[in-house]
Amino acid sequence: MPWKLASLGTLLAVAMLAGCSTSSTESTATDAVATETGHSRCDSKAAEFTIGKKASPELLEQARARAGAQNARILKPSDMVTLEYRSDRLNLNTDDNLVITRINCG
């Protein structure tokens, strides 16, 4: 009797764990859907034309559009930022005079 109960318990555990697993083809399909809906990564190299220029809302929008980012922000040296990484966000890092010194995504 204990062997039947142990095998039934093992079989039940395997069946439950099999329901939790995902295949790699499913994640590829969701990645393709995410790209089609516009959630893509930004390309910071496309926004390097802004380095050395004074930051402004117009320049920020031009850089965001060229980089293909969904969001963009201007970061001053004293600004506090979150530690979340977003591949669809463009960051324009400035000095104290709002001159852009560095471009990155995240």
Rank of each mutant, 00 (worst) to 15 (best):
P2S: 12
K4M: 07
L5N: 11
A6G: 04
A6Y: 11
A6T: 12
S7W: 14
L8C: 06
L8P: 00
L8K: 10
L8W: 08
G9N: 13
T10K: 07
A13K: 07
V14Q: 10
L17A: 10
C20Y: 07
S23V: 00
S24F: 04
E26S: 06
S27N: 03
A29N: 06
A29W: 09
T30V: 15
A32D: 09
A32H: 10
V33M: 12
A34M: 15
T37V: 15
H39T: 13
S40K: 08
R41C: 02
A46G: 05
A46H: 01
A47D: 04
E48K: 12
F49W: 03
T50S: 15
G52E: 03
K53W: 03
S56D: 10
P57N: 15
L59D: 04
L60K: 09
E61P: 00
A63M: 04
A63V: 07
R64K: 14
R64V: 02
R66Y: 01
G68L: 10
A69H: 09
Q70P: 00
Q70I: 07
A72P: 05
L75Q: 11
L75D: 10
D79A: 09
M80Q: 12
M80C: 07
V81A: 15
V81P: 01
T82W: 00
E84F: 09
Y85F: 14
R86Q: 11
D88L: 08
L92W: 01
T94W: 11
D95N: 11
D95Q: 00
D96K: 11
L98S: 12
V99A: 02
T101E: 10
T101A: 02
T101V: 06
R102Y: 13
C105Y: 02
